[in-house]
Computed example of a mutant assay.
Amino acid sequence: MYAQIRAHRILSKLPNFERIQSDENCFISDRDIDLGVIIGVYHNTDLDGEDVHVFSDGIRWKTGNKLYNVKYREILSIDLENKKDSKALVLHLINGNNVYVPINGRRGNFFDVMEVLRFFERVLNDTRGA
């Protein structure tokens, strides 16, 4: 529920974010990874097939031939790839891996990655009960 509220308040203002209304849980491919209810999709510009799907319990995206599924509770911390000029977020996972989530939209001097970072920070705080 937290992610839906945060997405409505933060992500829905981004022109590249498309809200999806659904009550069904989405299972990813044949791995049966339950990321919960689909909330929406962030459409990256200039990147082919690298949309980021936002769910109630995590996110999914594909880079090249690799499909990533990350639950919010698996994220230890988040950094910007290149400070304010970043086109990706770096997710530091509790298993020690780091993964890059592409977020490359911008409007003038405003980079979408900053709003997506704010979304993640709020959801992680909500999830941890902070």
Rank of each mutant, 00 (worst) to 15 (best):
G49R: 01
A130R: 08
I10W: 00
L89Q: 07
N16S: 13
V41Q: 15
V41A: 04
D34Q: 07
I20C: 14
R118M: 09
V37M: 03
D126F: 02
G105T: 02
W61K: 00
I38T: 13
I75L: 00
I10L: 11
P15S: 14
D46Q: 12
T63H: 05
Q4W: 06
S77M: 04
L80G: 14
A88E: 08
F17S: 06
T127S: 00
R6S: 13
R118W: 03
F17M: 10
I33S: 00
L91M: 06
E74V: 00
D48Q: 11
N69M: 15
Y100R: 07
V116P: 05
G58N: 10
L124E: 01
R122V: 12
N82K: 09
K71T: 05
R6C: 08
R122Q: 12
V113F: 01
V101E: 08
A7V: 00
D51M: 04
Y2P: 09
K87A: 10
V70W: 04
K71R: 14
G49V: 08
F120S: 09
E121R: 08
S56C: 06
V52F: 03
I33E: 15
A3E: 07
I10S: 11
E115Y: 06
V37F: 04
D48S: 11
V52I: 09
L35N: 08
I10T: 07
F110C: 10
I39S: 02
T127Q: 05
E50F: 02
M1L: 15
T63S: 14
H92N: 15
F120R: 02
I33G: 09
A7P: 00
D34A: 07
I5W: 00
L47W: 02
T63W: 02
G49T: 03
N97C: 06
H8V: 09
K66H: 07
D34N: 15
R60W: 11
N98H: 13
K87Q: 01
A7W: 00
I94S: 11
T63F: 03
R107A: 12
P15V: 07
I39Y: 02
R60E: 13
F119A: 09
E24G: 04
F120T: 09
I103S: 10
F119V: 06
E115V: 11
K13F: 05
A88M: 08
L67N: 04
N16C: 13
T45I: 03
M1E: 11
G96E: 02
I78A: 12
N95I: 04
L117E: 12
K66S: 09
L67V: 03
R31T: 01
I103C: 05
A7D: 05
A7T: 10
L89A: 10
R106P: 03
V52Q: 02
L47H: 10
W61E: 03
I75P: 13
H43E: 14
G129Q: 08
